[in-house]
Amino acid sequence: MRRMTWFNVTSLTLGFAFLYLPMLILIIFSFNESKLVTVWAGFSTKWYGEVLRNTAFLDAAWVTIKVAFLSSCLATVLGTMAAIVMVRAGRFRGRTVFSGMIYAPMVMPEVITGLSLLLLFISLGMDRGVFTIVLAHTTFAMCYVSVVVSSRLVSFDQSLEEAALDLGCSPVQAFRLVTLPIIAPAVISGWLLAFTLSLDDLVIASFTSGPSATTLPMKIWSSVRLGVSPEINALSTIMILVVAIGVITASLINKRNVVRQQREEAAAEKLA
């Protein structure tokens, strides 16, 4: 292997500094005593207290979590179905349209998706609120889920399913007892992705929500448009940490499982 060159070390250092410094600064200044965000005036956690006492934030957070949970569950079911159709159903009429509909929402500008869904809800005369945001988020998140799940299904050894059929399973049983447990990690990461996409979304939620439902990003949006505020810094820090801890834990668990499996496989071959 080649040694790391100075060029590589420098570009990695600068690159990761660029990626992480802004968030790091934000986290540091969330502990700033002063109301003036850019002037350091001593350590304090008072803005966290402010955030936790702010019922508007808490209400919005609750709405966001509700929306994210419902839409990610729905999106996981629909996305997994779509993935199975894409990988397994073979040819059928409308297949091109189907795969187009799966990929298009991912590259569609959010303003268009949001606008079009809003106009749909209005022309159907639906009351806008949590329910319509859930519908909207499910629609674009299911596409991400189906991409994640179908990339796992492509490498899935089909003879496992055939073995299940051969041993007496109906096709539904074969899916439930064999395929699903094996692709579960991909389904779970699809769910996680759908959940965070929904947590993050501002534009589509702004279009499709009504006066009764304000999500956290919408709340943050209306306040950051006026400028930087220490309260938002504290709230952002909480959100960043929650996501970072979640993602890091998930990937560590995953890595540990892979390492353990490799070690056990090596041990089994040695013993034989």
Binding site: Y20, V224, M239, V247
Partner: peptide, 29 residues
């Protein structure tokens, strides 16, 4: 390193953009 590149993708887009407001403003960092 790969995970460090992906990690920001999971955090809120809005917050990541917002974090630059404090850096780039006239009296910013």
């Amino acid at each position: 390193l790969f995970m460090l590149v992906i990690l920001p993708f999971w955090t809120s887009f809005l917050i990541r953009v917002y974090s630059w407001m404090g850096i780039l403003s006239q009296e910013g960092y």
